[in-house]
Design a protein around this nucleic acid. Structure first.
Lengths: 178, 178
DNA sequence: GGAGTTACGCTACGGGTCGTAGCGTATGGA
DNA sequence: TCCATACGCTACGACCCGTAGCGTAACTCC
């Protein structure tokens, strides 16, 4: 915090006049970093997914990003208010990427239109947790590279799974396709 | 740390004689917690996946587990040695669950046998990151419940994706099934 | 049985960081 | 000109990690 104030050229007390504490400041900083993510139209759902995966991985490779993100998530484990703040400021904002990607895929005819809005929202949440969770886990927990090959393999898995989810295969015993 | 020593009924210095520092102790503690995970044979790949997802989620709901895990992962962001220690003590150990689940599914005929061992290993790593990452992200970042409904939806997605991965569908533009 | 080794307990301390109190100061508008 | 608002600065309290140094008990080995 002293370092932050130093780099910002302000007094430490000024930081505490704008943010309630270290956690709040870090959440806001991370939220700004995540706003760099974009979803250019690469022509297919597969390419879009791979693109965002590699982009997210590149963001997570930057020391400030991964350290700040994980530190604040770890802290949120013991602070309910911080947890909701993370969800509102970071998670909810980036769901736009999933919604935009799905919309484009539907326009291309790669995914069917959603019938039930509630189911559509739950599916979007599922997709978001799968993508973000897998990339974070691969990069920061397993500590192995998120390269083009991995992104490609992950995308194959995800999109095939998406097809099953979208086609209403919600029986109690899935996996009958093999 | 003072609290740990107090609860253990030993002096703080004794802890530092057994572990190099707080991080190493926490990694070992988390590794023990993760060893509670089991993979009972529930009769189908789908049931096995749902079972382990719910079991993992229950483990992550316990305050000690989630706080300790995320704290040490966050710290590993700035400590390469700690990072490899986490990978060796926690991640690598729990890959047994994926390998066992796949083996059973192959015996049941739900998944084909692997031709290339290297590809099989990479696929196992992918599955592990997807499962662990999605559950952790859902529970601790999105801060939404990992209940039976979510586990069921996630399993449908994963197993359908597994089918695509296993059947050698590794073309540049997947998703042609929709 | 005596001497040495090993492991542990205990106190005190240094270092670092978060967050706050209190006070002085400048800027900008009425 | 006066007042309100915001900022800078110093000092400080509180907390926690990790270590130094020393005393002590148990255990082994001759």
């Amino acid at each position: 915090m002293g370092d932050v104030a130093l780099r910002a050229g302000v007094a430490k007390t000024t930081l505490y006049r704008r943010w309630a504490g270290k956690n709040e400041l870090v959440v806001d900083a991370v939220a700004v970093l995540f706003d760099e993510l974009e979803l250019p139209d690469l022509g297919s759902l597969s390419a879009d997914v791979q693109g965002v995966v590699l982009q997210f991985a590149a963001l997570l490779e930057r020391p400030e990003t991964k350290t700040a993100l994980m530190a604040v998530v770890a802290e949120s484990t013991r602070d309910e208010a911080l947890r909701t703040r993370i969800r509102d400021s970071i998670v909810a904002r980036q769901k736009r990427l999933v919604l935009l990607g799905r919309e484009r895929a539907q326009e291309r005819g790669e995914l069917p239109s959603e019938a039930d809005p509630a189911t559509a929202a739950r599916t979007a949440d599922l997709i978001f947790d799968v993508i973000a969770g897998a990339v974070v886990h691969r990069a920061l927990v397993s500590a192995e590279p998120v390269d083009a090959d991995w992104a490609q393999r992950f995308t194959v898995l995800l999109i095939a799974g998406l097809g099953a989810t979208a086609s209403g295969r919600v029986d109690q015993k899935p996996g009958g396709s093999v």
